[in-house]
């Protein structure tokens, strides 16, 4: 039980503010890697970065879906419930947020809430825990928030992510928003971005 009761933010207010500004900055400048300075020590396999995002954005109003590896670790659900109060759901369609500790085996994005044309904001934000935001698959994107083009590298990712991003963009203004979170950094791929095909 000691891991389950591992500490959250030391100063909940100011740490959440600092993390939020990093996440907002990442979302406003898609593909840019922004440092995430607030440190927490969550139970495995929830990563430090994933936990910081959870503490910043989750509460009783945000149903959360966990992937198989996270759902199998009872400490994680306990830690999330204790520190954020967020209900854990098993139906991905009901989730406001999803944490994927194993992005290579991510379910299809269509399994999550995509919003409606009237309310495109009622869609899921997917938090992909990655090992690195410096190595791995290279993605060049353009769109709102990007001056010319922005190139992001991350691993591991779903192997068919480029195709998924194209499909997700075609749904606009519906679609899911992605947060790629390493231990101390975050990058975002909101639904508004367009993938540039590498020649």
């Amino acid at each position: 039980m000691t891991t389950a009761l591992a500490l959250a933010f030391v100063d909940p207010g100011l740490s959440a503010q600092s993390s939020f500004r990093s996440i907002m900055d990442a979302m406003a400048r898609p593909g840019t890697v922004v440092s995430l300075s607030e440190q927490v020590a969550p139970p495995h396999p929830l990563s430090r970065g994933g936990a910081a995002v959870a503490l910043t954005l989750f509460d009783q109003d945000t149903p959360v879906w966990l992937d198989t590896a996270l759902a199998a670790a009872s400490d994680v659900a306990f830690w999330l419930r204790f520190h954020t109060g967020a209900p854990i759901v098993t139906d991905p369609r009901q989730a406001a947020f999803a944490i994927l500790s194993d992005p290579e085996r991510a379910p299809p994005f269509e399994a999550f809430a995509l919003g409606t044309l009237e309310y495109p904001d009622r869609s899921a934000t997917l938090i992909l825990q990655v090992d690195s935001l410096e190595r791995g698959l290279s993605l060049s994107v353009t769109g709102p928030g990007v001056k010319d083009r922005s190139t992001l590298r991350a691993m591991p990712l779903p192997p068919d992510l480029p195709q998924r991003l194209v499909t997700n963009r075609a749904l606009f203004p519906r679609g899911v928003d992605l947060l790629l979170v390493a231990n101390t950094a975050v990058a975002a791929l909101p639904r508004s971005i367009t993938l540039i095909e590498e020649s």
Binding site: P12, G13, A16, Q17, F20, I23, M24, M27, A28, T56, L57, F58, D59, D61, T62, A96, P120, D121, S123, T125, P144, G145, F172, P173, D177, P190, R191, S192
Partner: peptide, 20 residues
């Protein structure tokens, strides 16, 4: 803090769907 979180989530969705 709860109100701030709710507003912050709205801001992130607003950025993801510019102008909505």
């Amino acid at each position: 803090e709860q109100s701030k979180r709710m507003i912050r989530r709205a801001i992130l969705k607003a950025i993801a769907v510019p102008g909505y």
